[in-house]
Nucleic acid binder design. Structure first.
Lengths: 210, 210
DNA sequence: TAGATTGTTAATCGATTAACAATC
DNA sequence: TAGATTGTTAATCGATTAACAATC
C-alpha cells in the first residue's frame, strides 16, 4: 500500500501505455520514443514523458524507452505479476458477456466467482466460473477473500448489494448500474455507464463540442 | 448544430442529471435543490448550479429546481424527443449483450442494424435487430442514414472497420476495442475500455489514491 | 417578512503542453 | 562529435469549489 503522489489522470493512462507496450513487445520492437508512443495512444508526447517521470519509468536520452524493460516495469506497477481474482455480481445479459470477456488474456485478471438469484443457473459452472446464490454472497466473498467486484445487478438493488459487498470486505467496485453508489471513503467505485457514454457521444455530436 | 461553450466536463454530467431527474419525476417529486441532487449523484452542489447555469436551466431562488420542467429541458438538450438509431458493428459476446441491453428504455436510443461476418447469424433477426453481412456495411449505413456506431469487433480489425464507418458517413463511434482509433477531426470517438477500467480500479486500490 | 436557495464571482486546484537544457 | 530524445520547468488551460449577494 504505497502512498504515492501520481496524479489520477496519469494513473488512468497507465493501463493504456501498458497495453500498447505489450503490442510493441510482441512485434519485436526494442525501443520506442514518446512521440511514436503518443501517436499510437493519442496522447501528447510531453504528457507521456511527464507521466513516465511520475511513474519513475526511466528512458534514455537520444534513444527513447526500452520496450521490454518498461513492459516489465508497468507489469509490476499494475501488480500484474500475480493473478487478481474478482467477483461478478449479477449474471444477466451483461454479466454473461463479461464472463466470456476474458479479462485475463494477458492481463492477469480473472472472474473467479459469480452470484445470482436465478435458480436456473445457481449451482452451475458458466464459462468455467461457478455461480453461487446471492444469499451466500457475503460468506463466499469472505472465504475466497475477494476484494474486487463487478456489479451488474438491476439498478433497484444496486445500493443494497453494494452495502453487502462492503460488509464482506470488498474495497473496489466496478459499477455497471446507473446508480451512483454511496460508499465509505476507503472503498473505491469505478462507474461504467454505457448508456451515459452513448448519450454523451450523441450530445457532443449534435452540439459540435470538439 | 448549435456552437455553444458548455465545458466538456459539464456536458458529460448532463446524462447523469437527466437520469436522476427521471427517477424524481417518476417518484412524483416537484422540486429538488442542488444540495439534494448533489447528494444523489455525488456531485458538489456548487458544481451542479454552475453546470445548470451553463446549460441555461433555470431554478427558483428559495425553492430549487422544477423537476418536470428540468426533465423536459434536458430531454431537449439531449435530443431525446426523437429516437436516435445506432448501428452495432460486431455481434460477438459483448455485441449480443448490447443488443439486449435496451438502451432505448426511457432513453430513446435504439440499435437498429447490426453487422457481422459470421454466416451463422447474418440474415437473421437477433433481439429484434437485423444482422447484415459486413460486406454490405457501408451501403446499409448509407441507406439507413446511421451516423452513430458501436464498435465491438476484434481489435485487429478495429481501425479498418472504423475507416469504413467514416467513409459511410458515421460521425460518432462508441469504441469498445482497446485500439485508440485514428479519425478525422469531425468524427468523435468515445472509448469504453472495460479491462482498462478494471485495471485502473485495482491500481488505485493497491496504491491508495483517493 | 424571514428563510431558503439560486446564480455568479473569484480563488484554488489539477492537468496539459510548449519549450529547452541536459545528456545519451 | 552530431543528432536525437529525454526529463523538467514554467506557462497555460480547464475544472472545481467556497463564498455570498441577489432574490424567490
Amino acid at each position: 500500500m504505497t502512498t504515492n503522489n501520481i496524479p489520477k489522470a496519469s494513473a488512468r493512462r497507465l493501463p493504456i501505455y501498458h497495453r500498447y507496450l505489450g503490442f510493441l513487445h510482441t512485434a519485436g520492437k526494442k525501443w520506442v520514443s514518446s512521440t511514436e508512443l503518443g501517436e499510437a495512444v493519442k496522447v501528447e508526447s510531453a504528457t507521456i514523458r511527464r507521466d513516465f517521470s511520475y511513474f519513475g519509468a526511466p528512458g534514455k536520452r537520444g534513444y527513447g524507452y526500452d520496450v521490454a524493460f518498461l513492459l516489465d516495469f508497468f507489469n509490476k506497477k499494475l501488480h500484474q505479476e500475480r493473478l487478481t481474482n474478482v467477483a461478478l455480481i449479477g449474471v444477466g445479459n451483461l454479466g454473461q458477456a463479461l464472463l466470456n470477456y476474458n479479462f485475463h488474456v494477458s492481463n492477469n485478471l480473472r472472474i473467479s466467482a459469480a452470484f445470482d438469484i436465478d435458480e436456473g443457473i445457481v449451482g452451475k459452472i458458466l464459462s468455467g466460473v461457478p455461480v453461487y446464490p446471492m444469499a451466500n454472497m457475503v460468506e463466499q466473498l469472505r472465504i475466497q477473500q475477494l476484494e474486487v467486484a463487478i456489479l451488474t445487478v438491476p439498478h433497484e438493488m444496486a445500493q443494497d448489494v453494494a452495502d453487502r459487498l462492503i460488509e464482506a470486505g470488498v474495497h473496489g467496485i466496478m459499477n455497471f448500474t446507473p446508480i451512483r453508489l454511496s460508499v465509505p471513503g476507503n472503498v473505491r467505485v469505478q462507474n461504467v455507464d454505457m448508456t451515459n457514454e452513448l448519450q454523451t457521444l450523441i450530445y457532443f455530436l449534435n452540439n459540435g463540442i470538439g
